[in-house]
Amino acid sequence: MDPKIGIKEENLAGVAQAMCKILADEFVLYTKTRKAHWNVEGPNFHSMHLFFEQQYQELDQIVDSVAERIRTLGHYAPGSLKEYLGLTQLSEQSRDKNDSLGFIHELLADHQSILILLRENIKKFDSVWSDLGTSDYITGLLEAHEKMAWMLRSHIK
């Protein structure tokens, strides 16, 4: 059954398409953060292992929430690696070293890319697609990524 929530069907399709790209970015970032957790090495291993764990747990909740937002809008969420890699703006990188600073720089760059994407879309959800709810939802995502990026940046200084 299609949702009757006061948003035109074509607008819901636009919102869902944009949200699927966000979901792909979130999932790729989650996976990269999990990789950092598993593979970090060095004298600060234990603290960074725990730090990356805290970050991937938060991203896991975000991934689930974004997918559920897509379903709330009456569309299906992508759920395969092939779909995510086709939708994401992020890239997978292979690493020669598994040092914490290398992981931090990479993950910070990804959070910043997501922040830019969210900022570019936040008003579009409201003004173009008449979906103030998703615009508000994206504001919350923006705040979560700002905080996670701050935490990463704080390790670099």
Rank of each mutant, 00 (worst) to 15 (best):
L73E: 02
D99F: 05
S94G: 11
G79L: 11
E68R: 03
L117P: 00
I138K: 02
A149W: 03
E41I: 07
K8A: 13
R153E: 15
K32D: 04
I62C: 08
G102P: 06
Y76F: 14
E53I: 02
K32Y: 08
D126Y: 09
V63G: 04
N98S: 15
L108N: 13
N44C: 02
K123F: 03
H105K: 15
R69N: 08
I138A: 09
Y30G: 06
H145S: 06
H155V: 05
P43F: 10
S65N: 14
E41L: 09
S100E: 14
K4F: 12
N44R: 13
Y76P: 03
F45D: 03
A16C: 10
P43K: 12
T33Y: 03
R34H: 13
A13L: 11
G79C: 10
H145T: 03
I138L: 12
V66N: 09
L23M: 05
L118W: 07
Y30I: 04
S65T: 13
K4V: 15
L23K: 04
A18Y: 00
V128M: 11
Q55K: 04
K123S: 10
E41P: 01
S154D: 14
A18G: 00
A18K: 09
G42E: 07
M48N: 03
R69V: 10
E146Q: 15
W150N: 06
F45P: 02
F45A: 01
D126R: 06
A36M: 08
S94Y: 14
H105V: 12
F45Q: 05
V63P: 05
Y30D: 03
L81D: 11
V63D: 06
D126C: 01
K35P: 00
L118D: 05
N44Q: 08
I7M: 02
V15W: 03
S127V: 11
V15M: 08
E120T: 06
D96P: 00
D126V: 10
S94I: 09
E143C: 01
N98P: 01
S135G: 15
L115P: 05
C20H: 07
G102N: 13
V15P: 06
Y30S: 00
E10V: 10
F103I: 05
L87F: 05
S135L: 08
Q89F: 01
L118T: 04
A77W: 02
F52L: 09
V63S: 02
K8M: 08
L132K: 14
L101D: 15
L142A: 01
R69A: 09
V28P: 02
H37S: 06
K123N: 08
K8W: 00
I70S: 04
H75Y: 13
W129L: 04
D110G: 04
L132W: 06
I70K: 02
E143T: 10
I116H: 14
T88R: 06
L101I: 14
T88H: 09
H155D: 02
I7L: 04
K21G: 15
E68Q: 10
V40G: 05
Q61C: 12
S91I: 01
K8R: 12
E53N: 11
Q61M: 07
G74N: 03
S135F: 05
W129Q: 05
